[in-house]
Simulated assay, not measured.
Amino acid sequence: MGTMYYKGSIALLAILCLVVLLNACGAAGQEQGQETAIQPSPPIVTKAADPLNSSVHGTPYPFPKSLKLQFQPVELTMLKESKVKPTWERTAIVAFGAIDGTPVSLAIYKETDEHALCGSSYERVALLEHRGKAYRYVDCFSSSLETENQEDQKPLFLLGAKQHAPSSNLILHGAAELSANGPGRMAYFILNQKQDRWYGFEDWGFPRAIDLDGDGFEEVASQFEGLHLQWPDVVIYRWKGRTLERSPSIKTALRVPNPTYSEAIIDERNKQITVNAVANAEDFEVSDTGKYQYEDGVLVRVE
């Protein structure tokens, strides 16, 4: 009987040891599981996009307070006296102002030889007539010069912008529209009264003589009204001594974003130039507007 009691005690002790061992393994397994478990990352908080500063609407353009324009001399072509060719058919005589009481006119001709220069139906030859002589700017003019209602068509501009000197003898007399695939390509006529010679050059835009800076002398501001994918822009001409100079386009000078879709427009009444900058070419929305006055070769922003 003592032997059986001894064996039973040993068995009970073995069972107790096994229970303790299993509990210890379970606890160790739980601790190991806690150490190796992957903790979830904290949620990523994203800030809502600001619609005013997003790339969709573009960034407002910082217009400079002032900018000195880099003028360049205009290259002039001397007009030669010309005679009417047998294939030219005169269609109109257009009054073109007067200089010191002497009238100036444009004689308009249709070239009947369709294979000759200016032979297309929408092209014309124009001779400038002054003091009994006729001068030709060798390019094709627009048939719009024949229209009676020239105020609407804008084919002809009288400027009379004289050289800035007491004894001035250079006059930017006016401009007439050349033939093109859209309106606004102009031929300008300049008279050197001392030499009694006419000169010409061409540029895009409809000009007007206006004293932009109030110094008593008129500049010539040319408003390009836009064509195809090019939106409006402004160029300024001035006399510098005996030289006619041209500014860069206002949009180019200010380096506005997307110059194709941004625009510069002259306000003749207030003598200001308004520039609307388009920062994003996808929606064409104006991101900022700057207004400028011209002061002796410098653009000054109007606050």
Rank of each mutant, 00 (worst) to 15 (best):
L159M: 05
Q223G: 06
E177L: 03
L158M: 13
K154P: 00
L170D: 02
D211G: 05
W198G: 06
Y237D: 03
I190F: 01
A165F: 00
G184W: 08
F217N: 15
N149L: 11
F206A: 08
G226W: 06
P232D: 10
A180F: 13
F206P: 00
F157A: 11
F157W: 11
W198D: 08
S247N: 11
A165I: 00
A209P: 01
G182P: 05
Q223I: 02
F157M: 06
G160S: 11
L172R: 05
G184C: 09
G174D: 08
G200I: 02
Q230G: 01
T243P: 04
I171H: 04
W239F: 03
W231C: 01
Y188R: 05
L170V: 00
D203G: 07
L178F: 00
K162E: 14
N169E: 09
P232H: 09
S179E: 12
K154D: 15
D196Y: 02
A209T: 06
L170I: 02
L227R: 13
I236L: 12
E225V: 07
S167I: 01
P155A: 11
S222D: 06
E151P: 00
N169D: 13
Q223D: 14
V235S: 08
G214R: 12
W198Y: 06
R185Y: 14
K194Q: 15
E218K: 15
R197D: 12
A176Y: 01
E202F: 09
D203M: 15
G216V: 09
K154H: 13
Y199C: 04
E225A: 14
H173E: 08
R197L: 11
D203Y: 10
K240T: 10
N149K: 15
G214P: 13
D152G: 12
Y188S: 03
L212M: 14
S167E: 15
D213F: 08
S222F: 02
R246P: 04
R238W: 01
E202R: 15
R208S: 12
G174R: 08
A165C: 00
D213K: 06
N192V: 00
Q153D: 13
E148P: 04
D215S: 06
F189P: 04
E245D: 08
Q150H: 10
S179M: 05
Y237I: 03
R238G: 03
L191H: 10
M186S: 09
L178E: 13
G182M: 09
H173T: 08
Q195S: 09
D152Q: 15
W204P: 02
R197P: 02
A187R: 08
E151S: 15
W204E: 10
L212R: 09
D213E: 07
G200F: 02
L170K: 11
E202L: 06
D196Q: 15
Q163F: 01
D152K: 15
A180D: 15
Q163N: 05
G182Q: 12
G160L: 09
Y199V: 02
V235L: 08
P232M: 09
E202K: 15
P166L: 07
E148V: 14
R185L: 15
A161L: 09
K194T: 11
D211R: 06
P166E: 11
L191M: 05
I190A: 01
Q163A: 04
G205S: 07
H228C: 01
K162G: 04
I190G: 01
F189G: 05
